[in-house]
Design a binder for these strands. Sequence first.
DNA 1: CTTTGTTTCGGCTTGTTTGG
DNA 2: CCAAACAAGCCGAAACAAAG
Length: 385
Amino acid sequence: MAVTDILKDFDDLTEPACMDKILMYLEELKEEDDAFMELLVEKLAREEITWEQPWYQQTNSVSRPLKENNEKHKETYKTDTICKAENDIIIKNWKEFIHEYDVPDKIICLARWKNKVKSRLPNTPEESSRRFLISYLARGLQRTTFQVFRHIQTYFGGPVKGAYSAEEEKIMNVCFTHHPNHAVTLLSMVLGREPRGIYKRLQQLYNGKPERKKIRWTIPVASKLLKLLMKYTGLPLDELKNKRFDKEVWVKIAEEFDHHYIHIQKFWYSSLHVQLFVKSNVKLNKLRKKIFKKLKLTSYQIWSDIRWKDVVQQFPDGYTHYFIYKISYGPIHTKPKYHKEPLPEVLDYGLKRLKHYRKLRLRTLALNKEGDLEQVIYDKSNNKS
DNA sequence: CTTTGTTTCGGCTTGTTTGG
DNA sequence: CCAAACAAGCCGAAACAAAG
Protein backbone atom coordinates (compact mmCIF):
# COMPACT_ATOMS: atom_id res chain seq x y z
CA MET A 1 0.00 0.00 0.00
CA ALA A 2 1.19 3.50 -0.78
CA VAL A 3 1.40 6.12 1.96
CA THR A 4 -0.95 8.40 0.10
CA ASP A 5 -3.68 5.74 0.09
CA ILE A 6 -3.75 5.22 3.84
CA LEU A 7 -6.67 7.54 4.44
CA LYS A 8 -8.34 7.48 1.07
CA ASP A 9 -11.43 5.62 2.27
CA PHE A 10 -12.12 7.95 5.18
CA ASP A 11 -14.28 11.04 4.98
CA ASP A 12 -14.30 11.73 8.70
CA LEU A 13 -10.74 12.11 9.92
CA THR A 14 -11.78 12.18 13.56
CA GLU A 15 -12.64 8.48 13.38
CA PRO A 16 -10.22 6.47 15.53
CA ALA A 17 -10.01 3.94 12.71
CA CYS A 18 -7.89 6.46 10.79
CA MET A 19 -5.20 6.20 13.40
CA ASP A 20 -5.46 2.42 13.39
CA LYS A 21 -4.89 2.41 9.67
CA ILE A 22 -1.77 4.54 10.04
CA LEU A 23 -0.47 2.32 12.83
CA MET A 24 -1.02 -0.73 10.66
CA TYR A 25 1.01 0.86 7.94
CA LEU A 26 3.73 1.69 10.46
CA GLU A 27 3.74 -1.94 11.60
CA GLU A 28 4.36 -3.06 8.03
CA LEU A 29 7.37 -0.81 7.82
CA LYS A 30 8.71 -1.97 11.16
CA GLU A 31 8.33 -5.59 10.20
CA GLU A 32 10.21 -4.95 7.01
CA ASP A 33 13.00 -3.25 8.94
CA ASP A 34 13.15 -5.96 11.61
CA ALA A 35 13.34 -8.67 8.98
CA PHE A 36 16.17 -6.83 7.33
CA MET A 37 18.01 -6.46 10.63
CA GLU A 38 17.54 -10.12 11.45
CA LEU A 39 19.07 -11.08 8.16
CA LEU A 40 21.90 -8.65 8.73
CA VAL A 41 22.67 -10.16 12.12
CA GLU A 42 22.58 -13.61 10.63
CA LYS A 43 25.11 -12.62 7.99
CA LEU A 44 27.35 -10.35 10.02
CA ALA A 45 27.30 -11.47 13.63
CA ARG A 46 30.70 -13.07 13.36
CA GLU A 47 32.26 -10.79 10.79
CA GLU A 48 35.28 -8.78 11.73
CA ILE A 49 36.62 -5.67 10.14
CA THR A 50 39.70 -6.68 8.19
CA TRP A 51 40.40 -3.57 6.19
CA GLU A 52 42.56 -0.65 7.22
CA GLN A 53 40.58 1.98 9.07
CA PRO A 54 41.64 5.55 9.80
CA TRP A 55 41.64 6.35 13.51
CA TYR A 56 38.43 8.34 13.30
CA GLN A 57 36.49 5.29 12.13
CA GLN A 58 37.73 3.03 14.90
CA THR A 59 34.97 3.89 17.32
CA ASN A 60 32.54 1.40 18.75
CA SER A 61 29.57 3.71 18.48
CA VAL A 62 28.01 4.77 15.20
CA SER A 63 25.18 6.70 16.72
CA ARG A 64 27.25 9.24 18.67
CA PRO A 65 29.66 11.84 17.42
CA LEU A 66 33.37 11.24 17.83
CA LYS A 67 34.74 12.77 21.00
CA GLU A 68 37.29 15.44 20.22
CA ASN A 69 40.76 14.15 20.94
CA ASN A 70 42.16 14.46 17.46
CA GLU A 71 45.03 16.69 18.55
CA LYS A 72 47.47 13.83 18.57
CA HIS A 73 46.41 12.57 15.17
CA LYS A 74 47.76 14.02 11.96
CA GLU A 75 44.94 12.84 9.72
CA THR A 76 41.68 14.71 10.01
CA TYR A 77 38.24 14.11 8.69
CA LYS A 78 36.00 16.52 6.83
CA THR A 79 33.24 18.26 8.71
CA ASP A 80 31.11 19.86 6.00
CA THR A 81 28.00 18.32 4.47
CA ILE A 82 28.57 15.09 2.58
CA CYS A 83 28.64 15.97 -1.10
CA LYS A 84 27.46 14.12 -4.18
CA ALA A 85 30.84 12.48 -4.86
CA GLU A 86 30.94 11.11 -1.31
CA ASN A 87 27.36 9.94 -1.51
CA ASP A 88 28.28 8.10 -4.70
CA ILE A 89 31.03 6.27 -2.82
CA ILE A 90 28.55 5.24 -0.13
CA ILE A 91 26.19 3.89 -2.79
CA LYS A 92 29.04 2.09 -4.52
CA ASN A 93 30.06 0.50 -1.22
CA TRP A 94 26.46 -0.48 -0.57
CA LYS A 95 26.19 -2.19 -3.97
CA GLU A 96 29.36 -4.09 -3.23
CA PHE A 97 28.06 -5.03 0.19
CA ILE A 98 24.71 -6.39 -0.94
CA HIS A 99 26.46 -8.39 -3.63
CA GLU A 100 29.10 -9.82 -1.32
CA TYR A 101 26.69 -10.72 1.48
CA ASP A 102 23.58 -11.40 -0.58
CA VAL A 103 21.34 -8.95 1.22
CA PRO A 104 18.28 -7.27 -0.36
CA ASP A 105 18.78 -3.80 -1.78
CA LYS A 106 16.93 -1.99 0.99
CA ILE A 107 19.20 0.63 2.47
CA ILE A 108 16.11 2.42 3.73
CA CYS A 109 15.67 -0.35 6.30
CA LEU A 110 19.12 0.37 7.65
CA ALA A 111 18.26 4.05 7.76
CA ARG A 112 14.95 3.55 9.54
CA TRP A 113 15.69 0.77 11.99
CA LYS A 114 15.89 1.98 15.58
CA ASN A 115 17.27 0.05 18.48
CA LYS A 116 14.31 0.36 20.79
CA VAL A 117 13.81 -3.09 22.25
CA LYS A 118 17.15 -4.82 21.89
CA SER A 119 20.08 -4.27 24.19
CA ARG A 120 22.10 -1.22 23.32
CA LEU A 121 25.44 -2.57 24.44
CA PRO A 122 27.92 -2.12 21.63
CA ASN A 123 28.78 -5.79 21.36
CA THR A 124 25.26 -7.02 21.06
CA PRO A 125 24.65 -8.75 17.68
CA GLU A 126 22.46 -5.93 16.34
CA GLU A 127 24.87 -3.18 17.27
CA SER A 128 28.00 -4.94 16.11
CA SER A 129 26.36 -5.88 12.80
CA ARG A 130 25.24 -2.35 12.28
CA ARG A 131 28.70 -1.06 13.12
CA PHE A 132 30.29 -3.48 10.66
CA LEU A 133 27.95 -2.41 7.89
CA ILE A 134 28.38 1.32 8.50
CA SER A 135 32.14 0.87 8.60
CA TYR A 136 31.91 -0.98 5.31
CA LEU A 137 29.95 1.88 3.80
CA ALA A 138 32.42 4.44 5.17
CA ARG A 139 35.34 2.83 3.36
CA GLY A 140 37.29 5.32 1.30
CA LEU A 141 35.65 8.32 2.92
CA GLN A 142 37.34 10.94 5.00
CA ARG A 143 34.47 10.77 7.45
CA THR A 144 33.65 9.30 10.83
CA THR A 145 31.26 6.39 10.98
CA PHE A 146 28.85 8.65 12.86
CA GLN A 147 28.78 11.09 9.97
CA VAL A 148 28.12 8.29 7.52
CA PHE A 149 25.40 6.86 9.73
CA ARG A 150 23.68 10.21 10.12
CA HIS A 151 23.90 10.82 6.41
CA ILE A 152 22.27 7.47 5.71
CA GLN A 153 19.53 8.21 8.22
CA THR A 154 18.70 11.58 6.72
CA TYR A 155 19.38 10.91 3.06
CA PHE A 156 17.89 7.44 2.71
CA GLY A 157 15.55 7.47 5.71
CA GLY A 158 13.90 10.74 4.73
CA PRO A 159 13.83 10.62 0.95
CA VAL A 160 10.62 12.63 0.59
CA LYS A 161 11.36 16.31 0.25
CA GLY A 162 9.62 19.55 -0.60
CA ALA A 163 6.28 20.97 0.44
CA TYR A 164 3.88 18.63 2.22
CA SER A 165 1.03 17.33 0.11
CA ALA A 166 -2.61 17.49 1.20
CA GLU A 167 -2.54 13.75 1.95
CA GLU A 168 0.49 14.17 4.14
CA GLU A 169 -1.19 17.03 5.99
CA LYS A 170 -4.18 14.78 6.71
CA ILE A 171 -1.99 12.01 8.07
CA MET A 172 -0.09 14.49 10.23
CA ASN A 173 -3.27 15.91 11.69
CA VAL A 174 -4.62 12.49 12.57
CA CYS A 175 -1.39 11.56 14.36
CA PHE A 176 -1.15 14.89 16.14
CA THR A 177 -4.59 14.45 17.63
CA HIS A 178 -4.36 10.75 18.50
CA HIS A 179 -0.71 10.26 19.31
CA PRO A 180 0.77 13.65 20.13
CA ASN A 181 3.60 12.19 22.20
CA HIS A 182 5.01 9.93 19.57
CA ALA A 183 3.70 11.70 16.52
CA VAL A 184 7.02 12.95 15.27
CA THR A 185 8.98 9.70 15.11
CA LEU A 186 5.93 7.86 13.90
CA LEU A 187 5.25 10.36 11.11
CA SER A 188 8.87 10.58 10.13
CA MET A 189 8.80 6.86 9.37
CA VAL A 190 5.39 6.78 7.74
CA LEU A 191 5.96 9.80 5.52
CA GLY A 192 9.63 9.14 4.85
CA ARG A 193 10.61 12.61 5.97
CA GLU A 194 13.09 14.36 8.19
CA PRO A 195 11.69 14.76 11.70
CA ARG A 196 12.59 18.41 12.06
CA GLY A 197 9.91 19.72 9.73
CA ILE A 198 7.31 17.61 11.50
CA TYR A 199 8.32 19.07 14.87
CA LYS A 200 7.78 22.52 13.50
CA ARG A 201 4.31 21.60 12.32
CA LEU A 202 3.47 20.22 15.73
CA GLN A 203 4.68 23.38 17.43
CA GLN A 204 2.64 25.51 15.06
CA LEU A 205 -0.40 23.48 16.01
CA TYR A 206 0.04 24.45 19.66
CA ASN A 207 1.46 27.96 19.35
CA GLY A 208 -0.26 29.06 16.17
CA LYS A 209 1.35 30.53 13.13
CA PRO A 210 2.76 34.01 13.49
CA GLU A 211 1.01 36.47 11.20
CA ARG A 212 2.64 37.45 7.99
CA LYS A 213 4.45 40.79 8.07
CA LYS A 214 6.56 42.66 5.63
CA ILE A 215 9.12 45.39 5.96
CA ARG A 216 10.11 47.69 3.14
CA TRP A 217 13.81 48.20 3.52
CA THR A 218 14.14 51.81 2.45
CA ILE A 219 17.32 53.75 3.11
CA PRO A 220 15.94 55.40 6.28
CA VAL A 221 14.82 52.02 7.64
CA ALA A 222 18.22 50.56 6.85
CA SER A 223 19.78 53.56 8.63
CA LYS A 224 17.75 52.74 11.70
CA LEU A 225 18.96 49.15 11.63
CA LEU A 226 22.58 50.16 11.27
CA LYS A 227 22.35 52.65 14.14
CA LEU A 228 20.76 50.06 16.40
CA LEU A 229 23.38 47.52 15.49
CA MET A 230 26.14 50.00 16.37
CA LYS A 231 24.34 50.94 19.56
CA TYR A 232 23.81 47.41 20.86
CA THR A 233 27.24 46.09 19.91
CA GLY A 234 29.08 49.28 20.84
CA LEU A 235 31.12 48.93 17.66
CA PRO A 236 31.83 51.52 14.95
CA LEU A 237 30.70 50.85 11.41
CA ASP A 238 33.88 49.33 10.04
CA GLU A 239 34.13 46.82 12.87
CA LEU A 240 30.75 45.39 11.96
CA LYS A 241 32.24 43.85 8.84
CA ASN A 242 32.19 40.04 8.73
CA LYS A 243 31.08 39.90 12.35
CA ARG A 244 28.61 37.55 13.92
CA PHE A 245 26.47 38.93 16.69
CA ASP A 246 24.83 37.25 19.64
CA LYS A 247 21.24 36.36 19.17
CA GLU A 248 20.38 38.75 22.02
CA VAL A 249 21.56 41.66 19.90
CA TRP A 250 19.26 40.63 17.07
CA VAL A 251 16.35 40.09 19.40
CA LYS A 252 16.75 43.56 20.95
CA ILE A 253 16.87 45.13 17.50
CA ALA A 254 13.92 43.04 16.38
CA GLU A 255 11.81 44.41 19.23
CA GLU A 256 12.29 47.95 17.95
CA PHE A 257 11.19 46.88 14.49
CA ASP A 258 8.39 44.69 15.82
CA HIS A 259 9.51 41.99 13.44
CA HIS A 260 11.04 38.55 13.76
CA TYR A 261 14.80 38.78 14.28
CA ILE A 262 15.51 36.16 11.66
CA HIS A 263 14.34 38.47 8.86
CA ILE A 264 16.35 41.40 10.13
CA GLN A 265 19.45 39.26 10.43
CA LYS A 266 18.91 37.98 6.95
CA PHE A 267 18.54 41.47 5.50
CA TRP A 268 21.82 42.44 7.14
CA TYR A 269 23.82 39.54 5.75
CA SER A 270 22.20 39.31 2.36
CA SER A 271 21.91 42.99 1.48
CA LEU A 272 23.01 45.75 3.80
CA HIS A 273 26.38 44.22 4.68
CA VAL A 274 27.32 44.09 1.02
CA GLN A 275 25.98 47.56 0.28
CA LEU A 276 28.08 49.01 3.08
CA PHE A 277 31.34 47.16 2.73
CA VAL A 278 31.80 46.57 -0.98
CA LYS A 279 33.53 49.75 -2.06
CA SER A 280 33.26 49.66 -5.81
CA ASN A 281 30.86 50.16 -8.64
CA VAL A 282 29.64 46.66 -9.37
CA LYS A 283 27.60 45.53 -12.33
CA LEU A 284 25.53 42.69 -10.97
CA ASN A 285 25.39 40.73 -14.21
CA LYS A 286 29.14 40.95 -14.60
CA LEU A 287 29.51 39.68 -11.05
CA ARG A 288 27.12 36.81 -11.72
CA LYS A 289 29.11 35.89 -14.79
CA LYS A 290 32.29 35.88 -12.74
CA ILE A 291 30.72 33.62 -10.10
CA PHE A 292 29.48 31.16 -12.72
CA LYS A 293 32.87 31.11 -14.44
CA LYS A 294 34.62 30.41 -11.16
CA LEU A 295 32.14 27.69 -10.25
CA LYS A 296 32.84 26.03 -13.58
CA LEU A 297 36.44 25.53 -12.56
CA THR A 298 35.57 23.76 -9.31
CA SER A 299 34.97 20.08 -8.71
CA TYR A 300 31.42 20.57 -7.48
CA GLN A 301 29.20 18.11 -9.32
CA ILE A 302 25.74 19.44 -8.57
CA TRP A 303 24.27 22.73 -7.36
CA SER A 304 23.87 21.65 -3.74
CA ASP A 305 27.53 20.61 -3.55
CA ILE A 306 28.49 24.27 -3.74
CA ARG A 307 29.97 25.51 -0.46
CA TRP A 308 29.06 29.17 -0.65
CA LYS A 309 31.25 30.08 2.28
CA ASP A 310 34.26 28.82 0.31
CA VAL A 311 33.12 30.52 -2.88
CA VAL A 312 32.86 33.91 -1.22
CA GLN A 313 36.53 33.70 -0.24
CA GLN A 314 37.41 34.22 -3.88
CA PHE A 315 35.69 37.59 -3.93
CA PRO A 316 36.85 40.87 -2.47
CA ASP A 317 36.16 41.87 1.07
CA GLY A 318 32.65 42.86 1.96
CA TYR A 319 30.69 40.17 0.15
CA THR A 320 28.78 37.59 2.14
CA HIS A 321 28.11 34.02 1.17
CA TYR A 322 24.41 34.54 1.35
CA PHE A 323 24.54 37.48 -1.07
CA ILE A 324 26.62 35.47 -3.54
CA TYR A 325 24.18 32.59 -3.26
CA LYS A 326 21.16 34.83 -3.64
CA ILE A 327 22.25 36.59 -6.81
CA SER A 328 23.41 33.31 -8.35
CA TYR A 329 20.18 31.52 -7.61
CA GLY A 330 18.09 34.02 -9.57
CA PRO A 331 19.17 33.04 -13.08
CA ILE A 332 19.29 29.26 -12.53
CA HIS A 333 16.23 28.46 -10.44
CA THR A 334 13.88 28.36 -13.41
CA LYS A 335 15.76 25.41 -14.86
CA PRO A 336 13.79 22.24 -14.12
CA LYS A 337 15.63 19.82 -11.81
CA TYR A 338 18.55 22.18 -11.38
CA HIS A 339 19.40 20.29 -8.15
CA LYS A 340 20.14 17.08 -9.94
CA GLU A 341 21.54 18.23 -13.26
CA PRO A 342 25.32 18.35 -13.70
CA LEU A 343 26.56 21.70 -12.48
CA PRO A 344 28.18 22.84 -15.75
CA GLU A 345 24.85 22.54 -17.54
CA VAL A 346 23.10 24.52 -14.84
CA LEU A 347 25.79 27.20 -15.04
CA ASP A 348 25.52 27.43 -18.82
CA TYR A 349 21.80 27.83 -18.48
CA GLY A 350 22.39 30.66 -16.01
CA LEU A 351 24.93 32.36 -18.25
CA LYS A 352 22.49 32.26 -21.14
CA ARG A 353 19.67 33.69 -19.07
CA LEU A 354 21.85 36.55 -17.86
CA LYS A 355 21.61 38.09 -21.31
CA HIS A 356 17.93 38.79 -20.69
CA TYR A 357 18.49 40.21 -17.24
CA ARG A 358 18.14 43.88 -16.48
CA LYS A 359 21.47 45.63 -16.26
CA LEU A 360 21.57 46.70 -12.64
CA ARG A 361 24.38 47.88 -10.47
CA LEU A 362 24.90 47.13 -6.82
CA ARG A 363 23.61 50.02 -4.79
CA THR A 364 26.23 51.04 -2.28
CA LEU A 365 25.68 53.07 0.85
CA ALA A 366 27.74 55.11 3.27
CA LEU A 367 27.12 57.19 6.37
CA ASN A 368 26.90 60.92 5.77
CA LYS A 369 27.83 63.74 8.15
CA GLU A 370 24.47 63.56 9.88
CA GLY A 371 25.02 59.89 10.63
CA ASP A 372 22.42 58.67 8.18
CA LEU A 373 22.89 56.33 5.28
CA GLU A 374 23.20 57.81 1.85
CA GLN A 375 23.65 56.25 -1.54
CA VAL A 376 27.14 56.44 -2.98
CA ILE A 377 26.99 57.58 -6.59
CA TYR A 378 29.87 56.53 -8.78
CA ASP A 379 30.62 58.46 -11.95
CA LYS A 380 31.33 56.68 -15.21
CA SER A 381 35.10 57.06 -14.98
CA ASN A 382 35.09 55.08 -11.76
CA ASN A 383 33.60 52.17 -13.56
CA LYS A 384 35.27 49.15 -12.05
CA SER A 385 33.70 45.97 -10.83
C1' DC B 1 27.49 7.56 37.79
C1' DT B 2 28.90 5.98 32.88
C1' DT B 3 27.95 4.53 28.37
C1' DT B 4 25.23 4.31 24.46
C1' DG B 5 21.07 4.93 21.47
C1' DT B 6 17.14 7.90 20.64
C1' DT B 7 14.44 12.12 20.76
C1' DT B 8 14.02 16.91 20.90
C1' DC B 9 15.04 21.34 19.44
C1' DG B 10 17.80 25.87 18.62
C1' DG B 11 20.11 28.22 15.12
C1' DC B 12 21.04 28.78 11.01
C1' DT B 13 21.20 27.56 5.61
C1' DT B 14 18.98 26.44 1.52
C1' DG B 15 14.99 26.34 -1.41
C1' DT B 16 10.41 28.17 -2.81
C1' DT B 17 6.43 31.20 -2.72
C1' DT B 18 4.11 35.59 -2.40
C1' DG B 19 2.85 40.10 -3.53
C1' DG B 20 4.03 44.55 -5.20
C1' DC C 1 10.89 40.83 -12.32
C1' DC C 2 12.62 41.55 -7.52
C1' DA C 3 12.40 41.87 -2.47
C1' DA C 4 11.01 39.76 1.39
C1' DA C 5 8.87 36.19 3.79
C1' DC C 6 7.85 31.59 4.46
C1' DA C 7 8.89 26.61 4.48
C1' DA C 8 11.77 22.85 4.68
C1' DG C 9 16.42 20.92 5.47
C1' DC C 10 20.70 20.24 7.99
C1' DC C 11 23.74 20.06 11.88
C1' DG C 12 25.01 19.70 16.39
C1' DA C 13 24.17 19.41 21.05
C1' DA C 14 21.38 18.73 25.05
C1' DA C 15 17.82 16.00 27.16
C1' DC C 16 15.98 11.66 27.94
C1' DA C 17 15.97 6.61 28.46
C1' DA C 18 17.77 2.16 29.41
C1' DA C 19 21.19 -0.64 30.84
C1' DG C 20 25.61 -1.80 33.23
